[in-house]
Design a protein around this nucleic acid. Structure first.
Lengths: 157, 157
DNA sequence: TAACATGTTCAGTCAAGACTGAACTTTATG
DNA sequence: CATAAAGTTCAGTCTTGACTGAACATGTTA
């Protein structure tokens, strides 16, 4: 296939992996797989191909693809007459991923509320810190899902 | 001061720490300090107090408070006639923290663009994966700062 | 059923980094 | 200036978790 600049593409996968690791605490190898699946040709790759191009063990590929499947970032597909599993980036992955990250906003709001309950006078000066935290996250907990909706609608048109 | 339920507050600081560690890769001890500064009374605490209540070494407190200062989550204040440094949650911390996390969205958009440059035919089927990623993050890179603005304005009124 | 290809599991290795504790530096006060 | 309090730095310890490699399990074809 049209994979002339293999080295550049590999370097790209690595950059994605490093970024993911810092941003989301995603294991390096899982990030490499994601990066490679973003830019490889064809978009479907089997375990052996991934292991070879990423210089990873079978065990690592197996564990990490299963993990990526579980959190819904990739799909497993099959090819008739080929017993191997093929992996690919799932459509809509990015919106789902963002939506998932936004979940933590709600947890933060909840934590702030719990903190206020521990104070003698939640409405007093003492509670100002936690109220600021609670109010901000309440705001975003409401607004962020709306944004995702908005984008999904723009897409459909 | 009014710190009757000390145990409950400590447990709260610990919960905050665990949460931070998972969500943002923040060191456990830095999270404990943040958690405690959210709920302690008075809101200003010196290094010795933090070390004692959190059962942490001087070195740990020193390193982590400096780190929290650097990324702007806390303030260092002084008291006349007291040579110790006092730390407190910075006002507006949460909005800034969110704004900072949103920065990564721009980096993601940039990464997607770089990936497309590596493809033979960025506008073809091959580039669909990266285009979806780029478009989504472009959208959010535009909208998220607007949201923060909106909240800051609502606050001021 | 034999032989092989594919995929999974897991014990062990290795690296990264958080935390401690002690030595060291800085700064204030009598 | 001497002393002590406060804060910093850093070598060493310890924990965590990613990754490998080999044994094992599963499924497929002749």
């Amino acid at each position: 296939m049209a994979m002339d600049n293999l080295q550049a593409r590999l370097a790209y996968a690595e950059r994605i992996a490093v970024f993911y690791e810092k941003a989301g605490g995603i294991p390096r190898m899982a990030g490499r797989i994601m990066g490679w699946l973003l830019i490889c040709d064809p978009p479907q790759q089997n375990a052996a191909e991934l292991g070879q191009v990423l210089s990873a063990s079978k065990g690592s590929i197996s564990t990490m693809t299963r993990w990526l499947l579980q959190i819904g970032l990739i799909n497993k597909t099959a090819v008739p007459g080929d017993r191997r599993d093929y992996f690919e980036i799932r459509k809509g992955t990015w919106a789902d991923l963002l939506a998932q990250q936004f979940q933590t906003v709600g947890a933060f709001r909840e934590l702030a509320t719990q903190g206020l309950d521990l104070l003698t006078d939640p409405e007093g000066e003492e509670g100002a810190r936690l109220r600021e935290m609670r109010d901000l996250y309440t705001f975003f907990e409401r607004e962020l899902p709306l944004l995702i909706e908005k984008w999904r609608n723009e897409r459909k048109e």
